[in-house]
Write a protein that binds this DNA or RNA. Structure first.
Lengths: 350, 350
DNA sequence: AAAATTTCCGTGAACGTGCACGGAATCCGA
DNA sequence: TCGGATTCCGTGCACGTTCACGGAAATTTT
């Protein structure tokens, strides 16, 4: 109830008999200050429980920091378009903190373009970096450089099993595959399932589908050991061939009623599903792209396992901003985010 | 790329030939200022695209605003404990904005305690109020007072069909009942379902279960017209009687395999479920209380429809803070938030 | 021991806004 | 036309930092 002013830099200056300039120097450990003074100040800070006033701090700050964002390019209708959909808002929120976000994108199927993006990114002299890694090797060398320069970095979407990153925000990938299997089978034993894959996914070594497939397979092994698992590749660039592939498959295996894809492009199945309606069929995919949501609404897809990639981007950037401004590490390093189960009845308010 | 300073209050003072004091007066329309000056300033503001610097503004502000939060009491293990679990963090975030949150709680089954809480709340002279309404009449009179005093207010959890509130954050209640029915039946026709209700819920007239039940009933009517809908009341204060009620019911109707509750206390069924295991049974409830999550993990409950009540609280408060500080209304008034479908496989990262 | 360094630290001007104080201009009635 | 009321508006300090500048103190050099 008391008015209780917060303790300011001047309070601790008075207490230590030093000046605010010196206090500032030890707070940001810049410039020269004697050991004795430094300790007196730190002691006083602890005692008075000093916390800097963010508003005053930002107001007075000269330099603006930049956070670099390194993600696959956000083509229309893609997962990454979804992930970056709220970037402008994040940017706006951080601007008053004198923090600028620079966005560098690369072709998620070209390791060379990733290297190029890395170089351009490094040239912007960022204070921190947020990375969505698709290529193992390239990411490792990038991380090496960052570590050497003392630039903190965070992962989103998927991560490498290394140490040194500040934070990770993303789905628990293995478990998402496990859950997917449970939803697809409805907890019952089934006889056949078709996994549809995209050719080009094979070229990446660090993307989400790897772990998802592993989780799926383990579930089937444990709960549905007798099930035959079929697998086919389709080509997103060639819808006709893809359709033909599926028709050939189902011509041979008409008994297969369960279909699953582990990336965000289950909507690629639409041409086939539409021309061969079947009320008994169950189809599950990932991510709430608009095309997927449409298919869900119309009943072509049974369920989607969704995430909020825009939140992951936002949280990762926010974490780095906190690190820069407050200098404090995030509470948790690995932030596994909730998987949403979407049906036609709960997508509207997503 | 240019350094491009933001336009300040001084810029528009210079442009208009007035002083920053006058500019300040029209910006906050306080004090006396001639019509001519006011217009010149507004014109200049538009022309230069002036936006106040939030940091400087907060730094310079004298008075601290208070936002009052009026919700049912957060007893241990209750829904409202969950809802308020992140209140301290919200509070902390708003403190640098010179905004204080005061929390007033009432017994959700006593209209009198609600009135008392209202009085105490009004005495705190809040700049804005966030309300979780349980009683129709009491809330209406409160709203009347607020309106008269010009204090803006927002609803969370459920709302009254009136005009005048600034924002609403909550589940789409009717739809949540509809979804619940779809998940319970799995899209198939079923023969019987048991709705378990809590006696005391009848005494409130503005709580979420009303609309949920309506959505559920409509789904059943449309998709499962032959289904018999049973209904029983239990008493949370008397577990033994509740157990007896359920045992009596299932003694008479052993064929019933589907059970649903529309409030957050599906965990009350646990004693019965545990002593009468049945792998074919499906049980669905609402809200991710720890007790419910436990039951889900152990397989006693099949699915939960969850929400993030803490987010609703946070967002509502944030919206009011924005209104106070920036003076701008929220983009959307009714914010229907996503319903989460929880199974034992996706609860961990919730 | 004075000069030249080096180390340490105090001063004061920003940053952009809020607000109290009181001065100047205008108006009004007698 | 004059005094007082009213309306309008300018000035300047405060908010709590950051940071450059340069002075004082300590240390080393000659």
């Amino acid at each position: 109830m008391a008015p209780e002013r917060k303790t300011t830099i001047m309070d601790i200056a008075r207490l230590t008999g030093l000046s605010k300039g010196t206090v500032d120097r030890v707070l940001h450990n810049r410039g020269e200050v004697s050991k004795k003074s430094r300790e007196k100040v730190m002691e006083a800070v602890r005692e008075l429980g000093y916390e800097p006033d963010l508003n005053a701090s930002i107001l007075a700050r000269r330099e603006v920091h930049t956070i670099a964002l390194l993600v696959p390019s956000d083509e229309k209708g893609s997962f990454w378009e979804l992930a970056l959909s709220t970037l402008d808002k994040v940017r706006e929120n951080l601007l008053p903190m004198r923090i600028r976000i620079r966005h560098f994108s690369y072709d998620q199927y070209s390791e060379e373009s990733f290297r190029d993006a890395c170089l351009g990114m490094l040239e912007s002299r960022p204070s921190a970096v947020v990375i969505a890694p698709m290529f193992r090797a390239g990411t490792l060398t990038l991380v090496g450089v960052l570590q050497q320069r003392g630039i903190p970095y965070a992962f989103i979407d998927s991560k490498l099993e290394i140490d040194g990153y500040t934070a990770y925000y993303g789905m628990p990938l293995y478990k998402s595959g496990y859950l997917c299997a449970d939803l697809l089978t409805g907890g019952k034993e089934i006889s056949d399932v078709l996994i549809v894959r995209v050719h080009r996914d094979k070229e990446r070594q660090s993307d989400p589908t790897v772990n998802r497939r592993a989780g799926f397979m383990d579930y089937m092994l444990q709960n549905c050991p007798a099930c035959t698992i079929h697998s086919r590749f389709i080509d997103p660039a060639d819808p006709d061939a893809s359709l033909a592939t599926l028709e050939a498959f189902f011509g041979e295996h008409p008994q297969v009623r369960h279909i699953v894809m582990f990336n965000s492009r289950v909507h690629l199945l639409l041409p086939y599903l539409r021309s061969h309606p079947d009320r008994e069929r169950r189809v599950i995919g990932f991510d709430n792209l608009e095309a997927n949501l449409q298919a869900l609404r119309h009943g072509y897809i049974t369920m989607l396992i969704g995430q909020h990639p825009d939140e992951q981007v936002g949280l990762a950037i926010q974490a780095m901003a906190d690190l820069i401004v407050f200098g404090r590490q995030p509470v948790r390093r690995d932030n596994f985010m909730h998987m949403d189960i979407l049906t036609k009845y709960n997508i509207e308010d997503y």
